[in-house]
Design a protein around this nucleic acid. Structure first.
Lengths: 331, 331
DNA sequence: ATGAAAGCGCTAACAA
DNA sequence: TTGTTAGCGCTTTCAT
């Protein structure tokens, strides 16, 4: 930068002003400086700014897993929102390892991020304590509680499952099965309860016998569906905790020779891109990723200026995308 | 850091030495310093080091697209390799936009990355000129040429397709179709030629009539397969440019009522996790991601110390994973 | 409209 | 074995 200043016959302060678009610089000077910047291929060094001000114009995103397409798809939208807000993105994947979460949090702290979005489904709160300690705004996803320095963006499964159940009831289904996530995870409980409520609100019979745990992955959906098929009284439709689980359900049904949708209807959740590419294409609850990303940033910015208060509790709701995996029950 | 030094009764230089594990510090002093670091929740600030040395212990990764699961899966392995090498990762997705590539390159430069892995399938070389100008080591993937400051990691499609064709020939197939990538892309040409060579080397008939272009996505595979089915002489097996294309092929065949594998065999390429979850599970050419990530880092480190020379030309070869989408041709 | 200068945190060369 | 110190590049306050 000094070189640029020298060459343009100004001080480095003026160069800085030009780079940051300060209006107090005479246009002619600014042009000269810009030309020199071009000539010298000058690239500013943000680490100097980070060093000086202890902030980096970077938000962190901690996700459990990149192999579930839901997360990269969210990441994409999150990145878009950040770019609009002139921020960088620091991603960390933790693959259900407490150790990785701890080291990710440390990386975020080192890099002086301006905030962290935490999508890890389950974790020891102690692991993220350092973020609060250093006054870094935090937003969790679907933990549904705020505290000093942290907000939350909930995914409104209650609404999504209600839509799905009503859709199935309209088609004539009465016995709707459910394949959830790993037992024990809070988010799995939320989804299971949302399903139960949706069924009861629709005045349909609810039975534990028609629900199974999965693991948010294909294999879990497959196993659970096989188990459901062994029931004496089978459901005529199945709802799942996410799309990968639904993929497993489709596979199990194929293997068992149960046609979808004529013999069994299937509804997923997430709306990942591949859900439209299955055979049959999957009816699913699409989560509005862009809106969710925006909500995360909103909550983060809110917390930044109110770091001593409880953060925002926001919520986004999915909408049912009806495709070919649902139809009336067999008669 | 000064605070830590003060509190531990040493100089900041000693604190720095402790943090970096310098062996010249007396163990007792080191312990004291570490204790104070704990107490004060001190987190080092790497931007000071970046500022001082103009390097950041960060590698950049530029990928076209996170919605093709191949890329997040590669990313995961690349991150693993970097962690082992005590480096950070900076990711940029460019979604086939020249503008995004240019801004990604700029971000890499600003962040003072130690090297860049470039997986963009096609781009104007001018866009990455700045990297060479600033002496940043570059590794491209499957461009198959090196130059001053840049190496390449090729994916040995020749070998992979050969394996696949021999597998199909052994099963009794003679008319093997091929669905490639977007027309015009270098990597598409490489794959198409690799297929042609594999077929001819296996002494099977090769015909343009059995090949189609796709677009590396599901829809492209679907369309191309439909087009192949309209042929008077159909192939009995189809090879694709990647797994998503193969997913599309499976969908088209389902829709047309052509059973896989009894009426048509299908072989994908990439070995993404979901390829095992399709119905039927997909026979595919698995690309060794971990090895590929390692090769990228190797080539990068080599270029770093030989920045003025041509980079390394490395290559990784896939292996055929036989699953349920291939069997003998209908007789 | 522009310049001078301080200071962010770190590390390596050098001194002790 | 430890301390002193300079300087990396940037921005902003204050002065001119």
């Amino acid at each position: 930068m000094r070189t640029v200043a020298l060459r343009a016959g100004v001080s480095s302060a003026t160069v800085s002003r030009v780079i940051n678009g300060s209006p107090t610089v005479k246009e002619k000077t600014a042009q000269r400086v810009r030309r020199v910047i071009e000539e010298l291929n000058f690239i500013p060094n943000p680490s100097a700014t980070t060093l000086k001000y202890g902030r980096s114009k970077t938000y962190g995103l901690i996700i459990p897993d990149l192999t579930n397409p839901f997360f990269p798809e969210f990441l994409l939208h999150f990145e878009d929102v950040l770019v609009e807000n002139d921020h960088e993105l620091l991603v960390a994947t933790i693959r259900a390892s407490e150790e990785k979460l701890i080291s990710s949090v440390r990386r975020m702290l080192m890099r002086r991020v301006d905030g962290v979005v935490l999508m890890a489904s389950e974790f020891d709160t102690k692991a993220i304590e350092p973020l609060f300690l250093h006054n870094i705004p935090v937003v969790t996803v679907d933990r549904r509680r705020a505290q000093r320095g942290s907000g939350d963006v909930a995914i409104d499964f209650e609404h999504g499952y209600q839509q799905a159940v009503l859709h199935l009831r309209e088609l004539g289904h009465r016995r709707i099965g459910f394949i959830g996530g790993n037992e024990g995870l809070t988010t799995s409980q939320i989804r299971a309860q949302a399903f139960e409520k949706a069924v009861k609100d629709a005045h349909l019979p609810y039975s534990q016998a028609l629900t199974r745990a999965g693991n948010y992955r294909v294999a879990g959906g497959d196993d659970a569906m096989r188990s459901l098929l062994e029931q004496k009284i089978r459901p005529t439709a199945v709802l799942t905790a996410n799309d990968l689980t639904a993929f497993g359900v489709l596979r199990a049904l194929h293997a068992a020779g149960v046609d979808v949708p004529t013999k069994m209807s299937v509804v997923g959740c997430d709306g990942i891109l591949l859900s439209d590419s299955m055979y049959p294409s999957l009816t699913t609850i699409s989560i509005p990723l862009r809106e969710m990303a925006q909500a995360c940033v909103t909550a983060l910015e809110h917390t930044k200026v109110n770091i001593a208060k409880k953060g925002l509790l926001l919520s986004v709701r999915g909408s049912l995308t009806v495709r070919d995996s649902t139809s009336g029950p067999p008669r």
